[in-house]
Design a protein around this nucleic acid. Structure first.
Length: 276
DNA sequence: ACCCGTGTTCGCTG
DNA sequence: TCAGCGAACACGGG
């Protein structure tokens, strides 16, 4: 599910569902131990039980959850990986498929962290000192939260001969841009994803910045309500213009077919006619 | 059976 | 020294 817009949706959901509520107990799936590392599932459950949700921040694809336990701050760093999602249930029966951790709240509802592929992470951060976590410290600016500084983006791109599509997915360059939105943004910017990053002109870099912001904002706006359609759900309509549309006509020129290529072991979709 | 997947990390290489 | 590459992680769906 998750790139920046989907994680933003998760952050808003968590705020609405959990802020101000206390965790009465936690049930963890022992087989999902890798999610809780370096803590063991048991230690994780023990340390977080009794904590109250204070607030939720998002940087890129990371959720920074501030908790308070026994009057002391405690952080929960959550990453959804490829298939993670937060799900709220009324009671404690009706457990979602692939629930890996169930947080029983003080109002009888249960918050589930569901994750099929186990690439997600739930990590406790002592004192809620998120800045001290290396993977958080390494993140570049979040485009929605901080905007995109053109000079900084130009510097990041100019330093690399990597394909621009691969480069803008680097979380140190733009935190939160993943495989889908990288393709979507470069289509909007009319830039060939295979171009070396350091080959782009200043004007082209400006187009990339504008396009990244636009596709992220569009998607966040689309997810405005309580519901979100997950790409992987069977029968869900594909909301993207390029992603997973190989062989279809380009929606811009109406002439060329959308191509699928592989870059850095990930699928890229683009229009060979419009994107130069 | 085989390939694919919205992400990250690790070890190797030049 | 370090950017870049490929494999690995894990598991269901087509």
């Amino acid at each position: 599910m998750p790139e920046l817009p989907e994680v933003e949706f998760a952050a808003r959901s968590l705020r609405r569902w959990a802020e101000g509520h206390q965790i009465e107990g936690v049930a963890v799936e022992p087989k999902a131990a890798r999610i809780f590392r370096p803590a063991t599932p048991r230690t994780f459950a023990k340390r977080i039980a009794g904590a109250r949700f204070e607030g939720v921040r998002r940087i890129g694809k990371h959720l920074l959850v501030a908790l308070e336990r026994d009057g002391a701050p405690l952080g929960l760093l959550a990453h959804l990986g490829m298939t993670g999602k937060w799900v709220l249930r009324d009671g404690d029966d009706d457990v979602p498929r692939f629930s890996r951790a169930a947080f029983r709240l003080d109002d009888g509802r249960t918050l589930h962290f569901s994750d099929l592929r186990l690439f997600g992470r739930l990590r406790l951060v002592p004192g809620a000192r998120f800045e001290a976590v290396p993977e958080v410290a390494a993140l570049g600016p979040d485009p929605i939260d901080a905007g995109i500084d053109l000079a900084r983006l130009a510097a990041s791109l100019g330093r690399s001969r990597l394909a621009v599509k691969v480069r803008i997915m680097d979380q140190a360059v733009l935190a939160g841009v993943g495989n889908i939105y990288a393709s979507e943004a470069l289509f909007r910017a009319r830039i060939d994803p295979r171009r070396p990053a350091n080959d782009l002109s200043r004007a082209e870099i400006a187009r990339v910045a504008e396009a990244v912001l636009a596709v992220l904002r569009e998607s966040i706006a689309r997810d405005e309500g309580d519901e979100i359609t997950y790409v992987e759900e069977p029968g869900a309509a594909n909301p993207f213009r390029m992603y997973d549309r190989a062989g279809e006509r380009c929606p811009r020129c109406g002439q060329a077919e959308i191509q699928r290529i592989v870059q850095a072991q990930r699928s890229t979709f683009f229009c060979p006619r419009c994107q130069r």
